[in-house]
Design a protein around this nucleic acid. Structure first.
Lengths: 328, 328
DNA sequence: TTGAAAGCGCTAACAT
DNA sequence: ATGTTAGCGCTTTCAA
């Protein structure tokens, strides 16, 4: 009991005893058992983060933001990677609930995630949606303005003179993919350009998906091919560019490409990619704050949905080639 | 007790009872308490992975490999990010030991990690070093051939005619940084090129560090500047290139840059970066296998150190500019 | 200021 | 095939 008091910095311990206990602790290499503590306290001071693609810098930035706020508040973070699979997601959620996490931040893999999320609610574990909203789920959410962002990207291309603009979307059961499609369509309509469904390809937010989508667009009769393409995320943008280059098309000279989500590293090497970036780190910090508020008693507040604004980044540092802006 | 038997698939349960229990489980949304289970069993079927930079694709690839093998063997993985700080590393290790992980995979932040690793040993928790060896630590290790890799990169430049070759190393208390320095020196000596210490800059494996190192090299009197630079990892390579471009130097035309570790995404956009890539995923899978073997009883085997071979990648897909190979 | 008793939810071992 | 007992290591509560 006295040891417990020392570990938890309770006041009522004689300083002589405290010193003796601390000595014994270092001597024996004693490490308190968080399992036992969690078992009796009913909480673990651990929150979990489930992302849909750990290899995407967008999500690792989120992870850093989460880690930061959590640590500052005495919470540990465990990270899971669903790989855009609701099945893997379910497995992670189960394991995490079993480990009695206090709360969860989740970038849901798709609309099928609803069952899983309902289950979490039923178990009375708080969670916050991050990056992706899920219909019918009453939980706080921190997302980007996908509609606005896609509109900005598309209008950027329109302003450069493009009329046949393609779109490679993510899976349409993910909210961001639907919203980006909507923003794209809105931008076209605003400028009286008809939406041509052969120019819209649904893909999977992965590099290989972007690659395949490019082939589908290139297979169109030459007059019907797009002169520019919007990719709904960074990875598909890269895949797209790879495929276009393989086809001996110069980007952006022969065909322009813009994408959602930044590609910091890549852009450092090739600064001719225009993107709509999101403040990923902030997604993480804000979502964690919301979650911690819920855990700290603000349980019955109404659902809060925070929409963070995107930013158009047109990088043209060293003019070795024609930047996309000057494309006619 | 019967519920326990159902959950753990013990044979001795009447199928009628089993069905009734399973029904109750779904009805009540029951989730077994892993804390209680871990407490009594003395193991959690959880392993931990601590990496030094979660935003580096090299480490996320490792994480995927680890996750894969762990999952296949019924283990969960928790991930920690030390950010190249032995302090954060120590905090993570403590939290993880407290949570009674069964084993640990760690890319140690530096030579100061030794105290932490000794502590883990003393607590009788198995661990495997990954990517970075630590002197005086008797644990299995899975690393790349940093000496050989650096030699290959340096010789590549020598073969292209370079004589004044710079090196931006990582922190020299990290084994990979030391080994890459050694490989660089060996290559120069083999070709009778004197090692010029003003051309070797110690940095931190981060992008900003590569950026600063570039400035240091550019500050040399013009005749003493390098005509090519080896970066000891991918992030520093990017920072280097950014700084060089800001200084209006064309890469690779004015100054060549090669680096350790792949930059898949970036290279897709700018395929003129020659790198020595390591099979990151394999680092993860192999290390996890070693760890699981130890956990599965092979406790007293002698220390195993596995060195995975690197691969020189010279990507020149679409010749819009002079590739580095033709640099004279 | 310190200690003793009880119990968190589970499972190993031993009944029945 | 099912149930009982005990105990994992901690903290809450109450007592000394």
């Amino acid at each position: 009991m006295t040891v417990s008091r020392v570990i938890n910095n309770h006041a009522r311990v004689a300083s002589a005893t405290r010193v003796r206990v601390e000595q014994a602790i270092t001597e024996l290499g004693y490490v308190p058992n968080a399992l036992a503590r969690g078992l009796i306290q009913g909480r673990t001071r651990t929150i979990a983060l489930i992302v849909s693609d750990i290899s995407n810098p967008f999500f690792t930035q989120i992870a850093r933001g989460v880690e930061d706020v959590a640590q500052r508040n005495g919470y540990a973070v465990t990270l899971g990677n669903s790989d855009e699979s609701t099945e893997k997601e379910r497995l992670y959620v189960n394991a995490m609930l079993s480990n009695r996490i206090d709360g969860l931040l989740i970038a849901a893999a798709g609309s099928d995630s609803r069952k899983t999320l309902d289950f979490i609610s039923q178990r009375n574990t708080r969670f916050v949606l991050i990056d992706r909203d899920v219909e019918g789920i009453q939980a706080d959410a921190v997302v980007g303005d996908s509609i606005g962002g896609a509109r900005i990207l598309t209008e950027h291309l329109i302003r450069l003179g493009h009329r046949r603009i393609g779109l490679v979307t993510g899976p349409l059961d993910v909210s961001t993919a639907r919203d980006r499609l909507q923003g794209y369509q809105e931008a076209l309509r605003t400028h009286s350009i008809e939406v041509d469904h052969t120019l819209v390809v649904e893909s999977d937010y992965k590099r290989q998906g972007g690659f395949r989508a490019a082939h589908q667009l290139l297979a169109l009769p030459s007059g019907q091919r797009p002169s520019a393409v919007v990719a709904s995320n960074n990875f598909m943008g890269v895949g797209l560019i790879e495929a276009l280059r393989e086809a001996r098309l110069k980007v952006p000279d022969d065909i322009a490409v813009v994408c959602f989500d930044d590609l910091e590293l890549a852009s450092a090497l090739d600064p001719f990619l225009t993107v709509v970036a999101q403040p990923a780190r902030t997604f993480g910090t804000v979502a964690t704050q919301l979650l911690l508020e819920r855990l700290g008693g603000a349980e019955s507040l109404p659902r809060r949905k925070i929409v963070l604004p995107p930013e158009l980044i047109v990088r043209v540092s060293c003019g070795a080639r024609l930047p996309v802006e000057t494309f006619s």
